[in-house]
Design a protein around this nucleic acid. Structure first.
Length: 201
DNA sequence: CCCTGATTCGC
DNA sequence: GCGAATCAGG
């Protein structure tokens, strides 16, 4: 694979959109994220900021630069032309969403959850959209069905089934970065906290 | 561990 | 110019 103009275009566009090098590499195919990063640098568009925040250069412990201090400073003049957008590109949107701070509460039953950590809210009759629920059901079909002992930092810890029976296991699919659950379960665990105005009580 | 980008350097 | 290897950080 070579850097054809088209590929470079995609690279530039995605980089500008803030996509990570690995995502770009994946999209382009045939290249590694290293290749993408290398290209990004050669294209001279390393810093994505519109001209802000110098990453701070911590003097490397190892002395290196054979060159006298860095003249650096790349004042990128405001892009002369801003691509109006050739393509509307419907953003699939990675969604920075996630507003909720806390997982759905619910520790009604003394569910014995051994290695107590953050664990799970019981999937219960909640106010989750049918579609979401449906997709979660789908995902659960492909769950790894891990046992407690098999859970790791990178496996979804969403419980499925009844803990009181052997018809119980943990989702086990790959977790979403930093979260305890896979994408599907994160979607039901972290509610926007708007869904239902709690009624008067 | 997984993931980021940054740099180096042989090709 | 290219990108694997490596580095540095989250």
């Amino acid at each position: 694979m070579s850097w054809t103009e088209e590929r470079v275009e995609t690279l530039k566009r995605m980089w500008a959109e803030g996509q990570s090098a690995s995502q770009i590499a994946k999209e382009l195919g045939g290249v590694t994220r290293n290749a993408v990063i290398g290209k990004v640098h050669r294209l001279g568009l390393s810093n994505r900021a519109g001209g802000a925040a110098a990453p701070v250069k911590p003097a490397p412990v190892k002395e290196k630069s054979a060159k006298p201090e860095a003249p650096a400073v790349r004042a990128e003049p405001p892009a002369p032309e801003k691509k109006p957008a050739e393509r509307p590109a419907a953003a699939p949107s990675p969604q920075p969403v996630v507003a909720a701070t806390a997982p759905v509460p619910a520790t009604r039953k003394p569910v014995v959850v051994p290695a107590g950590q953050p664990l799970p809210p019981q999937p219960s009759a909640n106010e989750i959209s049918p579609e979401t629920l449906a997709s979660v059901r789908e995902v659960e079909k492909t769950a790894k069905r891990l046992t407690l002992m098999e859970l790791t930092e990178r496996t979804c810890k969403w419980p499925i089934g009844d803990p009181a029976t052997d018809d119980f296991w943990f989702c086990g699919l790959p977790v979403q970065q930093g979260k305890p659950y896979c994408e599907a379960h994160v979607s039901v665990a972290f509610q926007p906290m708007s869904a239902r105005r709690d009624r008067k009580r």
